[in-house]
């Protein structure tokens, strides 16, 4: 009985969302507000239990990090406390006189991530690509790869106007980009169709038992 009720609720919400295809209406509004509200609450709980509790609350107040005990004032304790305090500083923006302090946390957060990301990005997007694309022009495939790569790089060269030989390469690059986008579009549309089939199957099989 419970299954029937929950399946029916799911089906009604699915139809409410699809009603958006006609136009905005109270059913869609209800489904939209429901999912936004539930997800906000859900993520609040997830963030607390997955991040704040194990990384800040438990180490700082219960002196435990995972299964291990940590000492009050130890390195691990400070490593839990300081990011926690930086997180709290974000709330200073509710107090106009000290709102600027929130920028410290944002600065450390953004700068830290940017620094950490430098080496992997250079490795994956530059170094490895040089190694993979240093191809001798001994086959049609290699020629296509090299011409496509040079054309695309030329298109994304901003220090000169796209005229002359650079313009020719840039236009070639655009052709390669559009061919790539077309292929990607078709591939993704197919995957979206499979999602639609999944919902239709839910309605006709799980809910109405028609198929």
């Amino acid at each position: 009985m419970g299954t029937i009720i929950w399946t029916t609720i799911g089906a009604i919400l699915t139809l409410s969302v699809y009603s958006f295809l006609y136009k905005d209406n109270p059913f869609y509004k209800f489904a939209e507000h429901l999912v936004v509200g539930i997800s906000a609450g859900y993520y609040l709980v997830i963030y607390y239990y997955n991040f704040i509790d194990p990384n800040v609350v438990t180490p700082v107040f219960q002196l435990r990090l995972g299964d291990q005990a940590i000492g009050f004032g130890s390195g691990a304790w400070w490593l839990a406390l300081i990011p926690g305090l930086l997180g709290l500083l974000l709330y200073t923006r509710f107090f106009p006189k000290v709102a600027w302090v929130a920028r410290w946390s944002l600065g450390i957060y953004v700068g830290g991530y940017a620094g950490l990301g430098l080496s992997p990005v250079m490795q994956a997007r530059v170094i490895e690509q040089i190694g993979a694309n240093a191809l001798p022009l001994t086959s049609v495939t290699n020629v296509l790869i090299v011409v496509g790569l040079l054309g695309t790089l030329a298109y994304f060269f901003f220090s000169m106007k796209h005229k002359g030989i650079l313009g020719v390469f840039a236009r070639t690059g655009i052709v390669f980009l559009m061919v790539g986008f077309g292929a990607s579009f078709g591939y993704t549309v197919m995957s979206r169709i499979s999602l639609l089939i999944g919902r239709v199957s839910f309605l006709l099989h799980d809910w109405l038992h028609l198929v």
Binding site: V17, D24, S39
Partner: peptide
Amino acid sequence: SDAQFAFAGAVNGIML
């Protein structure tokens, strides 16, 4: 919302 499609649904609502 942090949820991808809840966010998309809400932005669609704003647009309309």
